[in-house]
Design a protein around this nucleic acid. Structure first.
Length: 585
RNA sequence: GUCUACGUAGCUCAGCCGGAUAGAGCGUUCGCCUCCUAAGCGAAAGGCCGGCGGUUCGAAUCCGCCCGUGGACGCCA
């Protein structure tokens, strides 16, 4: 929270504790009340600027009616040298506190002073966090889940950065293993079909059937002709993969860049295979006796390791038994390591790089993987608790109130590329962050392209553009912005003005809360609320008014709003428009 | 079947580490531009917070059970 808000709340806490101390000294309280109490901003502003439940929280151990306790406290509380000027008893025993008139003026000065940095804090204390998101398979086009994951991961990373963490964005490229073999096989068959006809060879059920495979095979055939047709199968597939895989990875990089996501690291799974880290991780498990061979495969004792972890977390034997934990294969009968084995090595690698925490954004369909991954990290000498997984529910696209599954153009499932072609990036990034990750959200395609107040992203951008416009207009009249004194800023007494300042003052705290909950949606909603309050203010209070000091005070408030909206939009890599006509072309 | 997420206005969703009269947007109805962008604002209507129990001075919020929806239970990733 803003330093001032933090200070005000600390003052209040002290004043309450001191008052309780005096009550004990006066013999009103039999003992020091120990149970914790909260200080909060009441939902209803008629209940003061801040409120505490101390009297109710203490009722039990003081054996006294809450209302009575409140009276004892209120009579002994000292608000001298604080930001508060009075305190009232209300309801069942709430103590409501009211800020001095000058507080809002101080907030405005504070926001203006901090400028671009307003909202930043050292909450995270520079802890290093690796956040991995999207990590789509390079064997085909990216889908809607990747679209949501991208917006979520990237914006969460920014929020964490604002909250004082050291952030590194990462994309894990599955460029090795089973899927790549399947990719090679699929390409191979499509390639052969070009020369031998579609009926000559059939594509197995569990391989990649997408058009994109055909296209890559055709490109390969265009370059190489039929010279690989009679080559050994292995060579042919290698050549096809060597051609198609880099193309696909490059396409993913292009798409992410277009989506305004800049990764610090593109981590190739193949490096784990090539430099021995995968073998190393498996060997650690072997040495600890956590593996065994069966049916020609190497297994990991998940049941034992995860069971122990769950027991530490307080689960009973019966509860664990009911989970029917299963062991996991690390190396298949055919000698290929599993995705799970590679993932263990990968996460071990992340922590070896010095990250205090790793955050993974996964689709909800991976939820079964979370617990065993944490367990496996314990087993290879890391701490599974340092891995946080955000499980994201899938997205339903709707248009005209109906669920849309297929792209009109291709008739296939809508890909990330389709989405980015049809919907402004600003809207996609914003709207995907309107809902918590865990919600099964709906994405309204019609709303996303709409340029009106119905569309939350335009609504916020408009508030910013409107402020720019006010400033421009005033400058045309020769009126320029100047610094205001505290008494001048205290002219802002309209309810719309006070509400705005109050909301502005909560920004830093909002970021911290959003970071703590891994929920950037809090910030988009905060931005919408801020825009709402601004538009209300705009309609109620004319900035360009007769009184010069009041005009300047209102301008100062506008600039605060402008700063905060700009900070949020920049944080989320969304366009910050000076005028709205620049958005529609 | 077991696990997991979720269930709040007609629709999409906030609120959920217990607090005062449960909020917003859309949709519906009715208003507001001689004045800084009406890409905006105001007003009205709309609720058994899925159901039943429990804990508590107090439950949409915490616990248990049921009902309903999505997802997971592979030598897939």
């Amino acid at each position: 929270m803003s330093l001032l808000v933090k200070q005000a709340m600390a003052e209040l806490r002290n004043a309450i504790i001191e008052a309780a101390g005096r009550a004990v000294a006066d013999g009103e309280f039999p003992e020091e009340p120990l149970s914790d109490f909260i200080i909060e901003v009441p939902a209803n502003k008629e209940n003061g600027d801040y409120s505490t439940n101390a009297a109710m929280a203490w009722a039990r151990n003081l054996h006294c009616a809450p209302r009575k306790i409140a009276e004892i406290l209120a009579g002994r509380i000292s608000l001298e040298d604080t930001f508060f000027d009075r305190c009232e008893i209300a309801g069942p025993g709430f103590l409501n506190f009211y800020l001095r008139e000058s507080f809002n003026a101080c907030i405005i000065q504070d926001i203006l002073e901090k400028g671009d940095n307003y909202g930043r804090s050292d909450f995270g204390k520079g802890q290093k966090i690796n956040i991995e998101f999207v990590s789509a398979n390079p064997t085909g086009p990216m889908h809607m889940g990747n679209a949501r994951g991208g917006a979520l991961g990237d914006c969460l990373a920014s929020v964490l950065d604002y909250a004082g963490y050291g952030i590194s964005r990462e994309f894990y490229v599955n460029d090795a293993g089973n899927q790549i073999e399947k990719f090679g096989l699929s390409l191979d068959i499509r390639y052969q079909q070009i020369f031998k006809g579609e009926d000559a060879i059939e594509l197995p059920e569990d391989s990649y059937h997408g058009e994109d495979i055909k296209i890559r095979a055709a490109e390969f055939a265009e370059i190489n002709g039929d010279k690989y047709i009679d080559a050994p199968e292995e060579d042919r597939r290698k050549a096809l993969i060597a051609y198609a895989l880099p193309k696909n990875i490059a396409a993913m990089k292009d798409n992410m860049e277009k989506y305004r996501i800049n990764y610090d690291t593109w981590f190739l799974e193949s490096t784990l295979h090539n430099d021995g880290e995968l073998t190393e991780a498996i060997n650690i498990l072997k040495e600890k006796g956590l593996t065994y061979e069966q049916d020609g495969a190497l297994w990991y004792k998940n049941k034992e390791v995860l069971g122990a972890r769950l027991k530490r977390e307080g689960k009973t034997d019966e509860e664990i038994e009911r989970l029917e934990l299963k062991d996991e294969v690390l190396v298949r009968k055919n000698g290929n390591p599993t995705y799970f084995a590679a993932d263990i090595a990968y996460h071990r690698n992340k922590f070896a790089r010095g990250f205090n925490k790793a955050i993974d954004v996964w689709g909800a369909d991976h939820h079964g993987h979370v617990a065993r991954m944490k367990g496996a990290l314990d087993a290879v000498g890391c701490n599974g608790d340092d891995l946080d997984v955000i499980l994201m529910q899938l997205v339903r696209l709707t248009s005209n109130g109906e669920v849309v599954r297929m792209s009109k153009r291709s008739g296939k499932a809508i890909t990330l590329v389709d989405l980015l072609d049809d919907i402004p990036i600003d809207a996609v990034r914003f709207l995907f962050n309107m809902r918590e990750p865990g919600s099964q959200m709906e994405f309204d395609l019609d709303l996303a392209v709409e340029q009106s107040s119905k569309n939350p992203v335009y609504y916020c951008q408009y508030a910013h553009a409107r402020i720019c416009s006010i400033i421009r207009k005033l400058e045309e009249e020769g009126k320029t912005v100047r610094e205001c004194t505290i008494p001048e800023l205290m002219l802002l007494t309209a309810p719309e003005e006070k509400d705005l300042v109050k909301h502005l003052s909560a920004f830093t705290d909002e970021i911290i809360s959003s970071a703590r909950n891994y929920d950037p949606a809090k910030i988009t909603r905060y931005a919408v609320d801020l825009a709402t309050l601004f538009h209300k203010f705009y309609n109620a209070c004319r900035v360009n008014c007769d009184s010069e000091p009041l005009m300047q005070a209102r301008l100062a408030l506008c600039i605060c709003v402008k700063n905060v909206i700009a900070n949020i939009l920049k944080m989320f890599s969304i366009t910050v428009p000076e005028r709205m006509d620049s958005l529609s072309e």
